[in-house]
Design a protein around this nucleic acid. Structure first.
Lengths: 119, 119
DNA sequence: CCATTATATTACTTATGCGCAATATAGTGG
DNA sequence: CCACTATATTGCGCATAAGTAATATAATGG
């Protein structure tokens, strides 16, 4: 078994990616570097909120911070974050499809039985 | 940008993996199926606590639950969870190595300057 | 059926973190 | 230097979740 010393930073990294707003901020950066005002506009989140999330992403080493004049540009630097999201997305969509199939199968069963009930 | 509707389940999945105790429970299952008592012994966590974490992992579709007599066995069923952990582990170890190099570089610089100070 | 062991659930305390409002700080143009 | 815009920080209320003790439920052996 892995020791908590090893698992703790892993858990921390996942925690960074476990908030919808933070993923939204991250998602707004997929098309390239943006300054804070742009991020606020795109995401519709509050200014202080966005600033906080960017700080967390920065400290996790997922984005870089580049002041340019009065603006500050943020950019995704850690591609693993997106690989992770895509992996999870794929897995979740597969699971949702399987659940949909199962529901469909159940419903066809129910229709069959009600049909036999009628006959 | 991805909509919150898409990002929400992704964030939820990451949240499941964002707790050290839960990762510890998961890690105790890498060597194969275990019952709750075994998991408690291996991890050293409290009984109610382990039970809760297993429920979360079960609902996330990461483990399966198999009652056998009076015992209940849990087993990892979603390999993606470990791929994710390994990805993060790799990335984190790389980053830690880089930081170690930077610190070493800084220290050698400092030693150089103090050397030149002395001369 | 009862005692015992295994597992799950509940109630509670506590800690963590989000979101917001207010405030502080930095940079720019006039 | 001042007003203005952009960004960061702080303090607070609120929700969520972890851990624990106590209790409930399930299965087994006697």
């Amino acid at each position: 078994m892995q020791s908590p010393q090893v698992l703790s930073p892993v858990a921390e990294y996942f925690k960074v990616l476990s908030e919808v707003s933070r993923l939204t901020v991250l998602s707004s950066l997929t098309s390239g570097a943006k300054n804070v005002t742009e991020i606020i506009t795109i995401t519709g989140l509050g200014q202080a909120n966005v600033s906080k999330h960017l700080k967390v992403l920065l400290q996790a080493g997922i984005v870089t911070r580049t002041p340019q004049g009065g603006n500050v540009y943020y950019q995704i630097v850690d591609p693993i974050a997106f690989e992770l999201c895509e992996l999870v997305c794929d897995r979740l969509s597969i699971r949702i499809n399987e659940q949909a199939k199962q529901i469909a199968a159940l419903q066809s069963l129910r229709e069959q039985s009600s049909y036999s009930d009628r006959v």
